[in-house]
Design a protein around this nucleic acid. Structure first.
Lengths: 145, 145
DNA sequence: TGCTAAATGCAACTAAGTTGCAAAAAGTTT
DNA sequence: AAACTTTTTGCAACTTAGTTGCATTTAGCA
């Protein structure tokens, strides 16, 4: 009998019209279990035993993005983070918060962001992304920079 | 007699308490003349004759950031863009727009962004950055992706 | 079972950004 | 103006994210 996780992965891959393969299922499983966006590096570290190759991870994530299963968010440093797309509509993503002190990344789902006002005529906006930096509740006040 | 540009550069460096050197003046001059944020690579291409070394550009930009003269904005690809900080307050920067079709980067100064609503208790926000992606007026409608 | 298209793995590469150290330039003191 | 100190620059070598081409394997199907 299949686990709930396994079924969910099968559904996701099916709905995206993607073949079910080892690496794909493994990456989805990691993303499903994480409550925050992950970098390719973090996924690779998690799956070193299963996926020997970072190229596979990059390509898999790219096809997930293309299929709308996952979306990319740029955070601090020079790495993208990937997370399941079920938390946001495609065009307006929730803000992502990075704590400058401990480095934790949090998705602030439900935080309203309105940019529409005053948008210049002629621009067509496909996607908006909001990044916040500061201190998270557990670091707040401890460190000023 | 000194040019207006030259004077402005001197003032900026003075106010930031930074020595006036060739590379610094050159980088400031390029940023002052550009009406959009530039990457290190773009600056380097502009100043190949004057600054033989990208490390100098990185370090100079870093010290400009530290002094609050310049701020970093992440755009598409995996490069930061740098622009003079006089267009925005330190904590709330104007949105940056990238055209998916032609790649042009525009600063949407004056566009209001309000994220405050619903911010979870305990978070301290130092900086917010908004990225928009879509089509610019001259590409609008020509290309759908 | 065998076939075919898609997916994976590998090696080699590109490009952004960093580090340590020596040489040069700026500012200061005498 | 010479000597000294501190900051800045240049160079070489490195790290890491992400990409490309090509050969091999695997999923899905006839």
């Amino acid at each position: 009998m299949k686990s709930e996780m396994s079924l969910r992965i099968e559904n996701l891959l099916n709905s995206a019209n993607l073949r079910r393969t080892g690496p794909r299922a493994a990456i989805l499983s990691v993303l499903l279990q994480a409550d925050k966006p992950l970098t390719q590096g973090q996924i690779a570290a998690n799956l070193a035993a299963v996926i020997p190759n970072k190229v596979t991870i990059y390509r898999t994530l790219a096809s997930f993005c293309r299929a709308g299963l996952v979306h990319k968010a740029f955070m601090h440093k020079r790495a993208w983070h990937f997370e399941l797309a079920d938390k946001c509509t495609e065009s307006q993503c929730h803000p992502h918060f990075t704590c400058k002190s401990c480095g934790v990344v949090r998705c602030l789902v439900g935080l309203s962001v309105s940019i529409v006002e005053g948008l210049k005529k002629g621009f067509v906006i496909h996607r908006q992304q909001v990044r916040l930096e500061g201190l998270c509740p557990s670091c707040g006040g401890k460190k000023s920079m």
